[in-house]
Write a protein that binds this DNA or RNA. Structure first.
Lengths: 228, 228
DNA sequence: TATAATAAATGTATTTTTTACATTTATTAT
DNA sequence: ATAATAAATGTAAAAAATACATTTATTATA
């Protein structure tokens, strides 16, 4: 099959740490492996990078395969390259983290693929160094979230301020003051109030907002630093 | 020589973006290549990663070879993996950036190796995507410098506050107010005043300080965010 | 030996940002 | 009518950031 020993040449893999936000909880997408290696173990979703594609292409390919999504917020985390990290191959893995909006369609695709969402403080034992990757990614998004409005990537296009706050509370793992949070978010001037309310979690209902991508881009170009 | 075509398997390389600070200028270490490929062109210092070493090991190896230094501040920048980035090999490169204190000994080693320091706003054309790597690394350290006291890595162990300010001015490419800068730096409580002065740049002389690594570690563990 | 030159060191008032904190509002179900 | 629920709102106090000008220590030289 292979002319050369799997330990004699480099294999390049990507592993994706895919975060979603659902029912007030930050979640991680894990995959129940159906074939060897590591059959019946849990892992992040990943793949070898093909010789004719870039690392970014490979990440997009498997993200689409497992969620149906394209144009997702996805960034490189870091490279994992210990000589003995994978007993089967001399493989370096470039970990990528992604933030996605969970919806019914995604849930369906995820299930069909044998993957599932698990709460981030209940992540089970994963194969190889995938738990380490998850921890590293969580720390990274916590850092990033302080300075870039990544939270919006995880929410539906229309969201309420209390939902946005719940997300930030999940990321930072602490409670925030609703008055101060609202004041801060509105001061950035990057969300637009809609003439619609979400009444799923209260009788009064909370106004829906949408993210103003154009204005955000403009502010970003001016070097504006969002400190949330 | 090689049993397989160089385009048929992955090669893994590291390229190091090594910054130093000398004579009030931020500098980049570039290498004048003495052999093919790219003989007589300029490049970052780099190497293929050996099958039996990690990416971090390879970076340390070449950093030591070109500067004699160990235990240097070095971090992963990102992976460069376009299919056509290197005409010779199917090679992905994991770029690392390092901050070092330039001294006479390092200057000697650098020269022996055929490398040289160039001012960062006079970086010549480098091979492959090395100019892009340099730009990316500069942006990264500018971001990092805002929140972590990386500046200290570039200065001699003993430094004066005006020298530290000049370094931050070089990184941020703007002037800072000396009273406010001093106040801010001292407020972090991570530098220790010594009973010695540096008189190389004024008659009055400026007090030397040293970085308090222990205290910095402690503050960092407490989640303290240094906003310089 | 007075003084000119040089860069280092210092303090304060003002503005801006962050924090802490409690009540009213809109709506639905009973 | 009222009880229940989460959403929406304002202000005062504290902390941090900013703007800004003079004095100090020393050496070289007039």
């Amino acid at each position: 099959m292979d002319l050369y020993n799997k330990k004699d040449k480099f294999y390049v893999a990507v592993d994706c740490i895919i975060f979603g936000f659902d029912a007030g909880k930050l979640k991680l997408l894990v995959f129940n492996r159906k074939i060897d290696p590591f059959k019946n173990s849990l892992s992040l979703i990943g793949s070898f990078v093909k010789i004719g594609e870039s690392v970014a292409d490979a990440s997009k390919r498997i993200l689409k395969e497992f969620t149906g999504l394209e144009n997702v917020y996805m960034k490189e985390l870091k490279t994992y390259s210990s000589v003995d990290r994978d007993p089967g191959y001399r493989c370096i893995s470039v970990a990528q983290y992604a933030l996605i909006r969970i919806n019914a369609n995604i849930k369906k695709i995820v299930e069909e693929k044998g993957a599932k969402w698990c709460e981030i403080d209940r992540v089970p034992k994963l194969i190889l160094d995938h738990n380490q990757m998850t921890t590293d990614a969580l720390n990274r998004i916590e850092q990033i979230a302080k300075h870039k409005p990544v939270g919006f990537e995880l929410l539906p296009k229309k969201f309420t301020i209390p939902k946005l706050q719940a997300l930030y509370e999940a990321i930072y793992r602490r409670k925030l003051d609703p008055r101060n949070f609202r004041k801060k978010i509105l001061s950035f001037d990057v969300i637009i109030k809609l003439d619609e309310k979400d009444r799923t979690s209260s009788k009064k209902g909370a106004y829906l907002y949408k993210f103003d991508h154009k204005r955000y881009k403009k502010l970003q170009e001016l070097g504006y630093d969002f400190e949330i």
